[in-house]
Nucleic acid binder design. Sequence first.
DNA 1: TTTTATTTGTCCGTATGTATA
DNA 2: GTATACATACGGACAAATAAA
Lengths: 253, 253
Amino acid sequence: MTTRDREKLPKSLGDDETSTGVTLWRRVADELERAIAAGTFKSGTKLPAENDIAARFGVNRHTVRRAIATLTERGLVRAERGSGTYVEAQRLAYPIHKRTRFSEIIAGTGRTVGGRLIASVVEAADTEIAKRLRVKPGTLVSRLETVRHADRIPISTGTAWLPAQRFPDAGEVYAGVRSMTKTLAHFGVHQYSRKRTQITAAMVDATDAARLEIIPGRPILCLDSVDVDADDVPVLTSHSRFVADRISLVVET
Amino acid sequence: MTTRDREKLPKSLGDDETSTGVTLWRRVADELERAIAAGTFKSGTKLPAENDIAARFGVNRHTVRRAIATLTERGLVRAERGSGTYVEAQRLAYPIHKRTRFSEIIAGTGRTVGGRLIASVVEAADTEIAKRLRVKPGTLVSRLETVRHADRIPISTGTAWLPAQRFPDAGEVYAGVRSMTKTLAHFGVHQYSRKRTQITAAMVDATDAARLEIIPGRPILCLDSVDVDADDVPVLTSHSRFVADRISLVVET
DNA sequence: TTTTATTTGTCCGTATGTATA
DNA sequence: GTATACATACGGACAAATAAA
């Protein structure tokens, strides 16, 4: 650790006044967290070595390890044996409410939204999709396979189904506008809202791992949703898989 | 497969009238799904062997495999090589709303609720917990480590924090009543509601895997929540880890 | 403990209909 | 119209894992 690196960390562990009764390792953890939150250690970069942090704070290396363990638990950092401890990218907060719109959420954080249509087909609805869209099984639906990015980083891949009769060539339209909101607007649906979201977690399969640019076996968040128009008629149902490491869903109630 | 087993499956794959344009494997998948939904094949039991299903429907074994693949994808069944294809237990629907109560949700499905206190300590709140409970960092809080069951099957393990001053000996109380709702009621809080829930997914660690009786590496759903009393004062915050295979979170909006 | 039968998983190939270039 | 690619469906063979004898 260079002198310059050490300078990045605060000079003390908070005076006794404000930290009474707080264990040493927790104070170290708080300082490290504050440094990460303040951008002193940016995401993707390495923390100083445990020994160096220990020396900086005048504590034992084990105290630092205990502190880092809590940060690891909370997903703030990721330790790699023999390499170092890396600051994880902050998880994107993804609110779930009536007006859940991917593009708006990403754009709202100042990130660049990206979307790509992988494939689109018109097929007969199976029982599950038919039930969600409140149509007869076998009714023709457009199925759209997409990947969505924030700042060029894949956030989710998903499958969306729309009734083909009401939304003919939905795939072609989406390919052009690259947004579900705009696709629906193209067909005159300017108002739609989230009816229901079902959330499960699973391990990513090979196909999704490739699309999301993550290694197979990582956890994903699966969101099954139904959106309805102003008359409460289902217009869209989807099965999206989010990279668990990159987002956190937030439900305000 | 006995004759009796074969009798369980429907005699035909649906007449051409209703199945026009639907591929064969999808019709097989729909029939199997219907049989599972109807309780013909109960959760935990084996499906007939692929060859037997094929014979029953008069299709090739590969067609049956294609059908089963979609059921596997959707988590309805789980294939074990050399053994058979098992019907998965239906995921417990866990609704997230203002009045989210574990015991009520489980009891509402006719299951037996179980809870166990693993440990409880009084400690100083770190910055994160202090922020959630809207108290000063270092304020004493009770931390409760619990495991909760439905029909003796572990559903979630979690850590809950309550302000120690307002809820003295919360651990002892919880150990007796085995319910967070009853613990709060014991201190006069008869009305509380969910303010915010943050959902992430991760892989289970060794400690939680043991508590939840699952193999390490399986995905878990992490819920970080804050509950407030009638005056909007935080009374409880928790970090729960749910077995992803056993539940699905449902958000109605 | 060893053997045998059962069952899923993976490969080979063939044929057919459909959409695309 | 022709060629190509793709999904569907069928048939067979064997490997690998499991369960029962």
